[in-house]
């Protein structure tokens, strides 16, 4: 009798488990299929890739490491290594420059010697940018914290101010600054870290005056430069 009750209990529990699973399955299906459940053609984020990115995922869940591989669970989780680090909003979610400057990491600069100090070069190059975007500030100092002159000169950049043609298209294709930025150094989405020197009000006004908009609109040029000032 007792064993019979126990048996029924097990049966009920098993049923509950299966029902629960069906519910969970339905919810997760609904979750992934929610966008499609209305009309697949007219959704938000039709093209946007993965708006909900898992950040610093553990190796076994990052889609690159094979969870079946016996070594995978021994690898470090990025989030464990990064707990004390200053955050940034993209890439590794780490501000590598500020943790280096704060001494939170002290990576070797030379293979033969752990104690060699980096050879820093304090030359800032400002690149004037076409249009309204702030000018690009290239700091040699920050780069020589990590890199050798030979990493950039002469293969990526001729060492002469203005001698190199650089454009956003080239960078997005992985050339020029895009050899590193967008792959290992902070990503291209972080516009303001490169475009760091805003145009002066005069420059912006001159830009507006030259525009087709200024030519075709009836307002005076003064108003076009600062439309909200009457």
């Amino acid at each position: 009798m007792k064993s019979r009750i126990q048996f029924h209990l097990v049966h009920v529990m098993a049923l509950c488990a299966v029902l629960g699973l069906l519910v969970v399955g339905a919810i997760s299906l609904a979750g992934t299929g929610l966008a499609q459940s209305k009309s697949p053609a007219n959704t938000f984020n039709r093209l946007l890739k993965s708006p909900t990115t898992a950040k610093n995922a553990p190796p076994a869940e990052d889609g690159v490491h094979d969870p079946q591989n016996p070594g995978t669970t021994m690898l470090q989780w990025p989030s464990e290594a990064f707990t004390e680090f200053d955050k940034s909003s993209d890439g590794n979610q780490v501000d590598w420059m500020s943790i280096l400057r704060a001494g939170k990491i002290s990576p070797w600069f030379e293979f033969e010697s752990q104690t060699t100090e980096p050879f820093l070069f304090d030359l800032v190059i400002v690149r004037e940018v076409k249009g309204s975007m702030p000018n690009v500030v290239f700091p040699h100092e920050a780069h020589t914290q990590w890199l050798d002159c030979s990493n950039c000169h002469d293969e990526i950049f001729i060492p002469e101010k203005g001698a190199n043609q650089i454009s956003m298209a080239a960078i997005l294709l992985g050339q020029k600054c895009g050899v590193c930025h967008g792959r290992v150094a902070f990503p291209v989405t972080d516009c303001r870290r490169c475009h760091a020197q805003p145009k002066t009000p005069e420059e912006l006004r001159a830009l507006a005056e030259k525009s087709n908009w200024a030519k075709t609109s009836n307002t005076s040029t003064d108003q076009t430069a600062a439309p909200d000032k009457k």
């Binding site: 997760s28 995922a57 869940e61 990052d62």
Partner: peptide, 26 residues
């Protein structure tokens, strides 16, 4: 069957949208 279902669900949730989860620079 229940356990197999759990396993399948876990595995499919792991493989959902893999690319976005890879650590930057790997």
């Amino acid at each position: 069957v229940a356990y197999v279902l759990i396993a399948v669900l876990c595995v499919t949730s792991l493989f959902n949208d893999n690319e976005a989860k890879a650590e930057y620079g790997d």
